[in-house]
Amino acid sequence: MLVSVCILGLVFDSISAAVLLTPRINGGQEVQIQQFPFVASLRELSGTNQYKHLCGAVIISEKYLLTAAQCFHSQQVNWFGITVGTNKKNDETAAVHAIKRILVHENYDAFTAPFNYDIALIELDQPLKFNERVKQISINGTFFEGQVEAITLGFGGVYDNITKLQSLKVKTMTNAECRSKVNKLTPVYDYSTLCAYSGNPKQRIGHNDAGGPLIHENKLIGLISWNPQVVGSEKPEGFTRISSYYEGWIKKHMT
């Protein structure tokens, strides 16, 4: 699948070399958008009226989506857009929805802690029209620990050969277990990190999957944030823990 964003290149010198992001969701299964109609693509303007996939995003209401804070090197809304209702990464026929507001978590710091408070809220200029291909997902506010079966989804990187939405089955682990399996400098925050692993070192999330959903029983529990190793590693991946932000931050800013 995916994971990083443009600004990550600015912080590589300050974090462990182990925190390297793979090029895409590897070993995933291609899925139809009707199976996961809440998945969206955050796109960045790369030319004259040309938008390319940058990160994953998740529809949580007709006007609001969630994604990773790391996806934004700027909060200039006209530099970004949202596409929905398609499982194609760069579907040129899909309408690009204008963004009214980008709200990166106020405690997010790309330079000192690029994966802490890794959450952003997107408000659209106009509400989405829901149908079988475009729907919101409910949020599960439970603080999950280990051994929870989940699914994560992503479109893959900008330059890889993945062209359609991929899904990957994973299982969560406790933060203590996660911390014991990754490099000491890999960020595992008690408050905001939820770790998970597919159980297969060839099945990984990777570049440009950041902001995509982690779901359990068709409810959102996390957002893709980081991957500490390349394909072939047995180390877990990190997700932004939605339960830590739902009541106090997400609801507050959905006005």
Results as ranks from 00 to 15, higher is better:
3 V>Q: 06
4 S>T: 13
10 L>K: 12
10 L>W: 14
14 S>Q: 14
15 I>Q: 05
15 I>H: 03
20 L>D: 01
21 L>F: 15
23 P>V: 00
24 R>H: 07
25 I>V: 14
42 L>P: 08
46 S>K: 15
49 N>H: 06
56 G>H: 12
58 V>S: 06
63 K>M: 11
66 L>Y: 11
69 A>R: 05
71 C>A: 15
74 S>D: 08
75 Q>T: 15
76 Q>F: 01
77 V>D: 05
81 G>M: 01
81 G>P: 11
83 T>K: 02
88 K>Q: 12
89 K>G: 12
90 N>D: 15
104 V>P: 06
105 H>R: 00
106 E>S: 09
119 I>W: 05
123 E>R: 05
126 Q>T: 13
129 K>S: 15
131 N>C: 14
131 N>R: 08
133 R>P: 01
147 Q>V: 03
153 L>S: 09
155 F>E: 09
162 I>V: 14
164 K>H: 09
168 L>H: 08
177 E>Y: 02
177 E>W: 00
178 C>I: 07
180 S>V: 03
191 Y>A: 14
197 Y>I: 08
204 R>W: 03
205 I>E: 07
205 I>D: 11
206 G>Q: 06
210 A>N: 10
213 P>K: 11
220 L>Q: 10
221 I>M: 04
222 G>L: 07
224 I>W: 12
228 P>M: 05
239 F>D: 12
240 T>C: 12
240 T>Q: 09
243 S>K: 08
244 S>E: 04
248 G>A: 14
252 K>H: 13
253 H>Y: 14
255 T>S: 09
255 T>D: 07
